[in-house]
């Protein structure tokens, strides 16, 4: 039986596009699990974790790689996640008025190290926690923000790259092997066209 932290990390990998190993490597997973629980009414996170473990999604771990040319999401809804099992789970989550905003807050938590308060309508409908306010979780959380990794950069004021590193080309878009294997990053050759526009809904 998968424990709750594993479940949380697996869902987080699906939502953020970073492999579980990378997420665990930030050292923030347990803190974020607690922070998310604290910011939500009882039981809401478990609903989200369950939705992320739909049979279609649960049968295979998030692949960590988008399928090129994934079909547009039906119904014109604002969905633009991965395809196949991920897409199914994503659809289940982001198509849900209760779980969608929570999932978005969780993504922002991982990327920014800060909790973003849920919309007022959401709180009116599903309940409000006193911890559901905009706040940086901790100094460590700020430094662990995934946004810096996605940018090929480093958090301002921490994890510096060293004297003169800024004169070199930015690290090419880093890719990861499928979660559940090694999580090794494969930097591309410097100078090679290495980035592609993400799909927009």
């Amino acid at each position: 039986m998968e424990n709750r932290l594993d479940q949380f990390v697996r869902l987080s990998a699906l939502l953020t596009g970073f492999a579980p190993l990378h997420l665990l490597g930030t050292g923030m997973a347990e803190t974020y699990l607690r922070a998310t629980d604290a910011a939500l009414p009882d039981g809401v996170l478990d609903e989200l974790l369950d939705a992320g473990s739909l049979p279609s999604a649960g049968s295979a771990p998030p692949t960590g790689s988008a399928v090129p040319g994934a079909p547009a999401q039906p119904g014109g809804s604002a969905l633009a996640g991965g395809a196949d099992p991920d897409a199914a789970a994503g659809q289940a989550i982001f198509g849900d008025a209760k779980l969608g905003p929570v999932a978005r807050a969780l993504i922002l938590l991982w990327y920014r190290g800060a909790w973003t308060a849920l919309p007022q309508e959401w709180r009116s409908a599903y309940g409000a926690s006193p911890r559901d306010v905009d706040h940086v979780v901790s100094a460590e959380a700020y430094q662990a923000g995934l946004q810096w990794d996605a940018a090929g950069a480093h958090p301002a004021g921490a994890r510096q790259q060293g004297y003169g590193a800024w004169a070199s080309p930015p690290a090419a878009l880093e890719t990861e092997s499928a979660p559940g294997t090694t999580g090794v990053r494969l930097p591309r050759q410097a100078g090679a066209p290495s980035v592609t526009e993400g799909a927009r809904s």
């Binding site: 988008a66 996640g81 991965g82 946004q147 996605a150 940018a151 526009e197």
Partner: peptide, 17 residues
């Protein structure tokens, strides 16, 4: 934009730098 997962990450990697 409603992005999440690998598409979110790829979008940010393609624009932030």
């Amino acid at each position: 934009q409603g992005l999440y997962g690998t598409k979110l990450r790829a979008h940010l990697a393609a624009t932030l730098p």
